[in-house]
Computed example of a mutant assay.
Amino acid sequence: MKPLPLNFYQKSTLELAKSLLGCLLVKETDEGTAAGYIVETEAYMGPEDRAAHSFGNRRTKRTEIMFHEPGLVYTYQMHTHTLVNVVSGAIEKPEAVLIRAIEPKVGIDLMQRRRNLPNLINLTNGPGKLSKALGITMEDYGHSFITPPLYIASGIIPADISTSPRIGIENTGEAKDYPWRFFIEGNPYVSRTRKKQSF
């Protein structure tokens, strides 16, 4: 498992959100290494996107990393969960891709212990679930995905990619209908079934 180079991240946010599907998300810790294939992502398109944390060019302590170069780790807390994003877009163009679900591949026993859950399907089929299973924390904020301990490596080529509106952003006006959620069609680890469009 070798980290993908910086130029992998130097593309449009929507293209990156699709390109991440099938890649391996890897986290190395003292407990061991855990990894899984990315099967679902969501693109957040910055100042013009009412669902993005950086909507209106909002620059806060939390969103600061979004204004930096692509390929950096943007983690944030939602309730008791840590969610992990890939910073995308150019410098001062605060966009990001949320990793919503992975298919467990490496260190499955470790992931099950962390989540105290024997059921594989529910182990990583959501953004908070996958972070806990992999050991991703707020300490990963601002690090680069091109170097360990948290990185993205090449994996598999998806046979069929579908797209749909994003999830959990109902109060964002027309942004709630943008088809910026991408997932591997038919993969059982996708977080939620929702009306989809072919892609």
Rank of each mutant, 00 (worst) to 15 (best):
T147F: 05
G128N: 00
L134C: 11
N116S: 13
A133I: 03
S144Q: 09
S164M: 03
D160T: 10
T137E: 03
R113T: 07
I152S: 00
A101W: 00
N119H: 13
R114N: 07
L130A: 01
T147L: 03
S162A: 15
G142R: 06
E139M: 06
A153H: 05
G135V: 14
S154V: 02
N116W: 06
N116H: 12
L130C: 00
G135T: 07
G126N: 05
L120V: 06
L150I: 12
G126H: 03
L110Q: 02
P127D: 06
P118A: 05
D140S: 13
A101S: 14
I108S: 02
G135S: 12
K105I: 02
G128I: 05
I157Q: 15
P158M: 14
S164T: 14
L117F: 00
L110V: 11
S131A: 13
N119M: 11
R166K: 10
I167N: 12
G107H: 04
Q112R: 15
N116L: 14
P158S: 15
I156H: 01
I102E: 08
R166S: 12
L130V: 08
E139Y: 06
A101Y: 04
K129N: 05
S162N: 08
N125S: 14
P127G: 08
E103A: 12
Y141L: 13
M138E: 13
A133M: 11
P104A: 02
F145L: 12
M138I: 11
G128Y: 03
A133S: 13
N119D: 13
L117D: 10
K105E: 00
S164F: 11
I161F: 00
S164W: 08
P118H: 04
D160Y: 10
Q112W: 09
P118M: 04
P165L: 14
G142P: 07
M138W: 05
G107R: 05
I167L: 15
I157M: 08
I146M: 12
D140E: 12
E103M: 05
F145V: 11
E139V: 02
L110R: 04
R166L: 11
